[in-house]
Design a protein around this nucleic acid. Sequence first.
DNA 1: TGTTAGCACTCGACTATCGAGAGTGCTAAT
DNA 2: ATTAGCACTCTCGATAGTCGAGTGCTAACA
Lengths: 351, 351
Amino acid sequence: MDLSERQLQILQAIITDYVENAEPVGSRSIAKKYDLGVSPATIRNEMSDLEEMGYLTHPHTSAGRVPSDKAYRLYVNDLMKKKNLSAKDKRMINERLVASRDEFDRTIRHAAELLSEITHLASFAMTPAANQETISFIRLLPVDERTLILMIVGDSGNVTNTTLRLNVPYTQESLELLSKNMTVSYKGRTLDDVLKNEIAEDVGSDIEALAQLKGNVMPSFIRTLEDMLNVNLYMEGMTNIFNLPEYTSIDRARDFMELFARKDWFTQKMLARDDGVVVTIGEENDKMKDCTLITATYHVDGKLVGKIGVIGPTRMKYDEITSIMEYLTNNLSESFRLPGDTGDGNAGKDE
Amino acid sequence: MDLSERQLQILQAIITDYVENAEPVGSRSIAKKYDLGVSPATIRNEMSDLEEMGYLTHPHTSAGRVPSDKAYRLYVNDLMKKKNLSAKDKRMINERLVASRDEFDRTIRHAAELLSEITHLASFAMTPAANQETISFIRLLPVDERTLILMIVGDSGNVTNTTLRLNVPYTQESLELLSKNMTVSYKGRTLDDVLKNEIAEDVGSDIEALAQLKGNVMPSFIRTLEDMLNVNLYMEGMTNIFNLPEYTSIDRARDFMELFARKDWFTQKMLARDDGVVVTIGEENDKMKDCTLITATYHVDGKLVGKIGVIGPTRMKYDEITSIMEYLTNNLSESFRLPGDTGDGNAGKDE
DNA sequence: TGTTAGCACTCGACTATCGAGAGTGCTAAT
DNA sequence: ATTAGCACTCTCGATAGTCGAGTGCTAACA
C-alpha cells in the first residue's frame, strides 16, 4: 500500500504550498505552480486517494486540502531533504552566540533567544541535567557559631550551596572533619547514585560531635543535591506565535500560553526525550495536539546533556528548522567542551 | 472646582458598576441599582458634567459612561475604603504561604503564584535587591591547579560563587592569603559601595605571586558582585488575563504579553518604584497605557527590599487587591525576619 | 433654580440575505 | 488512465434592516 511516485510528488507539493501560505491548497493551484505534467482533474483524483489513506484532510467540502500529521511525519522521515543554512542564519549564529563555559545559564538563555529570532517560533532551552555529574568535593564553611554554608562542587564546574542554621553551635574541628569525611565518601560518585543509595545509609562515627553534626547536615545535603539536579528552563519568543495565522483565535493562543505556563510539566516532558534532533508532530504529543515540537541536545564535556527546542504549529518549515537546530547545538557542544581549548583564564567578556 | 457630594456618589457608583461588569454604565441602571434619590435625567446631567471634568469617557454617543484614569486615581486616593480580607483569601494566604528564609527564590515564586490565583490577575515577584547587603567574607577554594571557586558571602545569608580558570597555576598559599586579604578589605561594606569604589583601586602587594593572582581574580570578583545584585523576576498567572473582557482582542493580548517578555525593562521599572503599596494607573505608566500596576514591598531583615505586584487592566478591584497585597507582604516580611525567631535549624520541610 | 418626564436621535450589535469565488466530485468523452 | 465540463457546496464579505440601550435636549414642574 505504498504511495506512487506521483502521489509523493503531489503530497510534497501540497505540503510545501501549505507550509508557505497556510491556506488549504486546491488541485488547480498545484497543477499551475508545480508542473507535474498532469491536469487538475488527475490531481483531484490522487488527492482523493491520499485523503482516503489519511494523508490529507478537508476543512469542508469546497475547500482545498490540508496535510495531516501523518503527511508531515512522512515528509520528515522520507521526503525532506537536508537544507543548507542560509548565509544569513549561519552568520547570525556565529556572531551572536557567544558561549562561555563559565556561564551556562546566560549562554543557554541566549541560545534560546537566538533560536526564536531565527525561526520566528517560540523556543526554549534547558540547562544540562546533572544526573551524571560526579562530585568533586564537599566543603562546609563557617559563617557564625550556628550558621554554616554547605557547598557541593561537581567535576564539570557545577557549584551549588545552601546556607543552614543549626539549633546548637558546632565546633570548628568537627566542621573540617565532616568536610573531609563527606568528600571522601562521595567523591567521584554521580549525584543520581548518591541520592538513590545514600539517604538510608546509617552514619556511624567514633566522634560524638561529628555524628551529631552530620545528622544535622544530611537533610540539607540531600536538598542541595536535589537542587543541583534541577534544570532551569528558559522560554523565549512566545509572542512570536501571535503572528501566525493559526493563532489568531484567542482561544488557541490561550491554550498555547497555558501549556507553557506549566513549566514543571514541560520540563519533565523534555527530559524524557531522546538525544539528537527529535521531531514530534501533532497527535504524537499527548497534550498540544496541534503543535509540533522539535528538540535537539547539546553536550557539556560529552557527559551532561542539555536540550534546546522550538514549538509551533504543525505547519512549519521542518527542513530549515531542523538544520538550524543541528547547527546551533553543534556550536553549543563545541563551546562547552572540556577546558583547555578555550585558553582564556578570566571571565569571558560580556555580551 | 471640587466635586459635589452627589457627584462623588455617582462617580463611585459608576466605578463600582463598571469594575463589576466591564460594560459602559448608563444613567438608568445607576438610578435603579444605587438609590441616590434622583432620577436618571438628573444623573445624566451630572454625568455630563463629570465627563467635562475628565472623570468619565464615552466610547460612542449612545453608550454609557466609562471611568477615566483620573476617576480611578480619585477613587484610589479619596473614595476607596479599606476592605477587610475575605476569610477565604486570608485562609488561603495563611495556609499556602510556607515561607522559608533559606529559600527566598522558592518562597517568592510561591507568593507570586498565590497572588495571581487570589486576584485572578497576572502577578510578578522580585527577589530582594541586594544593594545594601554587606559582605561577610570572601573565600577562594581550590579545585585543580588552575581552577578555583570564588565565593562571596553576604550578611543576610546571600551566597554567590563563580568558577574560574586561570592561565597559569596558582599556589595554595597565595590563594589562602588572598582570601584573607580580600575578606579584610571588603568585610562589612555594601555591594554597591564596593562596586562603585573598588574597581579602579590599585592592588599593591609585597608578594609578587599574590599580586598576580589578585589581578586575575578581580574581574571575576566584580562579575560575581554584579551577579549578587541581580534580582530574579518571576511572573505568574499571565494567562489569567485571557479571561478578562478587555483582552479578548488578540492585539491587546499580544501587547500585554510582549510587555511581559521584556523582563529586563520591567525589572528596571519595578526597582525604581517607592516602598509600600504603590498604584499606578493607565497613563501614569509610560508604556502599558491601559494597565494598572500595583506593587508592594516586603523586607528581609529590615534591610533588603523585594517587590511583589499585580498587573491588569485599569478596571480592577482596587480596594480588595491593595488589601490582599498589604496582608501578603506583611506576612512575607514577618517570615523573612532576622534569624533566631524561627527556631528551626534544619532545612524547612518541602511543600 | 434645580429636578424631572418625555421624546427624538444615535449608534452598535445582531440577523438575514445575497452574490462571488474557490474548489470539489461526478460523468462522459478522449 | 486521463481529462474537460459542469453542477453543486460551502465560505466569505457586503449590504440592509431591526432592536435596544443610552444620550441630549426641551419643556414642564416644585
